[in-house]
Design a protein around this nucleic acid. Structure first.
Lengths: 209, 209
DNA sequence: TCCTGTGAAATACTTCACAGCT
DNA sequence: AGCTGTGAAGTATTTCACAGGA
């Protein structure tokens, strides 16, 4: 029930959740695939097909109950629990990540922060104390950390990622602009605004000079 | 020569450039598709096929000249020039984006910053003065802005994006965690770490409890 | 001999179209 | 009458496999 789900489908589920939460805020109780598709710019059949991988959530002739479908999807993605994260790198970028308000409301908490810089270690940032990267294995165990967040300079990124993998971490969010390598059973996602920009310029070139 | 290139191919070109720049730093002069593929975890045939959409860049029996291929790809993506960007929203996130050191070396410069908050307008951040969003149209024209960067609260994002579109901007990097709508000729990329996390938990759920 | 460039085959993903439930 | 769920058809993308140049 896990590997036969197309990757692209899993990538779209969070989009559905996000749209449904907007609909819920607007007070809408029921939505059909056409309307949901219009908001997301996704074909209605695509949405129905995607959902069909996981079960039957709609009512024929009516559509989907907004709150119920949102709950189902959150459960499917494992979002009906808290996830604990460890941050590696408390430089400028790392500090921005620590102060980002978007994680907590979605159930993601940063519960530990690491660095290699002796001047940073021991410092308090918010309610976290920056720890030596050497303590990572024990801390991951003690605090039940599920996800690693990497915000170190590019040259240090693979090392940081290897350290996380060695602790048994199976999901890493990498803010460093490098293509890191991980074993096949480890999930890795990159947050790299420059990559995003570089794919847009290709299309800009055509319209502009 | 633009619309018949598969989207996924365009998404991979920046990855090739990034890997090639590492190889160049390492002093490697020539690389073949197998080795490049190993670094990127992409099949060699995929790389050769991708490149074949744009021309013939390799030498049979040898491979690709690293610097030359990098130059070709940079040209294809339009990265052999500077791109000017306008930031909307100078809150915590916006300020982090302004101080991000990763844009300039890749030819992306933020040359204007806007906000709606009267308390922010007129303030200096680095060498930029925060401007009223009302001035956006004239500033985009005067400073030749190509790309908009949105870092406003979710509730304001669609408004900010509409303002950019109205100025004729054709590429927008959206940091606000909302699915915004743009006309078909406008490129939009989202930077949303929560979406990335939410697609990883699906796979985590299987291994962990 | 080694490795590119590329048609052809295989696979993955999307869209169609309609039976069937409400 | 309206809309879901889904096989089947249609596209898109990836991989194979090999001719041919260095």
């Amino acid at each position: 029930m896990i590997e036969q789900i197309p990757r692209v489908v899993v990538l779209r589920l969070p989009l559905y959740i996000r749209a449904l939460s907007v609909l819920a805020l607007e007070g809408k109780e029921v939505v059909n695939s056409r309307e949901l598709g219009e908001r997301l710019q996704i074909a209605p059949a695509q949405i129905r097909k995607d959902l069909s991988y996981f079960g039957k959530f709609g009512t024929q002739g009516r559509g989907y109950n907004v709150k119920q479908l949102m709950g189902e999807l959150r459960h499917i993605l494992g979002l009906d629990r808290q996830w604990s994260m460890a941050l590696i790198g408390v430089g400028r970028l790392g500090r921005a990540i620590l102060s980002y308000e978007g994680f907590a409301p979605q159930g993601f908490r940063i519960v530990a922060a690491f660095d290699t810089d002796q001047r940073q270690i021991g410092k308090k940032i918010g309610d976290l104390v920056v720890q030596d990267i050497k303590e990572i294995a024990s801390t991951v165990r003690e605090r039940g950390i599920d996800i690693g967040v990497v915000a170190v300079p590019p040259s240090e990124a693979q090392k940081a990622i290897d350290a996380l993998v060695d602790c048994g971490i199976k999901a890493i969010l990498n803010y460093a602009p490098v293509g890191a390598r991980v074993p096949g059973d480890v999930q890795l996602r990159e947050i790299d605004p420059v990559l995003a920009l570089q794919t847009m310029t290709f299309y800009l070139k055509a319209s502009k000079g």
